[in-house]
Each structure stands twice: as structure tokens, then as C-alpha cells.
């Protein structure tokens, strides 16, 4: 599909907005509909479109397999790490209130935001990994 000029141009225009929208969904999650799962998938969709139009090699150049792998792990660690931090601060596991003992409600906002970020990173990375694993099959 690399020959279709229109597709290439439109895609290039579209991708920043897709990613931006993903970020919007991501960081709006604690107030309205949204959150890490949806954001992650939307974010990954940007990469998938990019891959479809410009080829898998281009995606791999931007997001090498190893990097994607690290992001999967990192997202999980952010999630679990938050829980550990709350424990160290004297709360239970994932008791966000403990993040800001003076204002538990603030702490809860913060906690959810971080958690959702972790989820978003992992979901996006997993989606990209799945896409590139399937698309890359048989081409070594």
C-alpha cells in the first residue's frame, strides 16, 4: 500500500490526532468515561495504521520488539509499584488515599491517574506486540 499517495498523506495527518486522542482518553479517565484500557488500544491503533500503510519494518524501527517488551513490563511495574508505595506509606496495597495523607481525596485522584497510566502503557505495548508478532510471522 506504500504507493497510494492519498492514503500515505491522510495517514500521516491522522496519526498525531489518534495519539493525541488516546492521551486525552487516558488522562480524562478519572473524571469521565475513559481510562487506560481504551487509551492504550487507541494509542496502539495509531501504530497499527502506520504499520498497515508504511510496512511493519517502519513500525519496528519506531518501536523495536525489545522496547515494546520493556514497556509492557514497565506498565505493570508502575501499577504494582504504586501499590507498593501506598503500602510503604502506611496504607493497604493500592490504598491511594495514603499517597497524600493530608488530603486522601487528592491522593485518590493521583493514584488512579498513575494506575491508569500503567495500564495504558501496558495495553498499548501489548497491542503493538501482538500486531507486530502476527504481522511479522513468516517474514522472520
Amino acid at each position: 500500500m506504500t504507493d497510494h499517495t492519498i492514503l500515505r498523506v491522510v495517514t500521516k495527518l491522522l496519526i498525531p490526532f489518534v495519539l493525541l486522542f488516546a492521551l486525552y482518553v487516558q488522562f480524562h479517565g478519572d473524571y469521565g468515561p475513559g481510562g487506560g484500557f481504551q487509551a492504550g488500544v487507541i494509542f496502539a491503533a495509531g501504530f497499527v495504521v502506520y504499520g498497515l500503510i508504511f510496512g511493519l519494518a517502519e513500525v519496528r524501527r519506531v518501536a523495536p520488539a525489545r522496547v515494546v517488551e520493556i514497556f509492557i513490563a514497565a506498565g505493570l511495574l508502575i501499577f504494582a509499584g504504586t501499590g507498593v508505595v501506598t503500602m510503604l506509606k502506611g496504607g493497604n496495597f493500592l490504598e491511594y488515599g495514603a499517597l497524600n495523607p493530608a488530603h486522601p481525596a487528592e491522593g485518590q485522584h493521583l493514584g488512579i491517574l498513575i494506575i491508569e497510566l500503567g495500564v495504558g502503557i501496558t495495553v498499548a505495548a501489548v497491542m503493538i506486540a501482538i500486531y507486530s508478532a502476527f504481522a511479522g510471522r513468516g517474514r522472520a
Partner: peptide, 13 residues
């Protein structure tokens, strides 16, 4: 639960 759960991504890293 979280010891093995955190260890799993660390293995990848």
C-alpha cells in the same frame, strides 16, 4: 501475590 507478580515483569527487564 505481589512478589511473584512484580518479579514477572522484572524478569523481562
Amino acid at each position: 501475590i505481589i512478589v511473584p507478580m512484580i518479579a514477572a515483569p522484572l524478569c523481562v527487564l
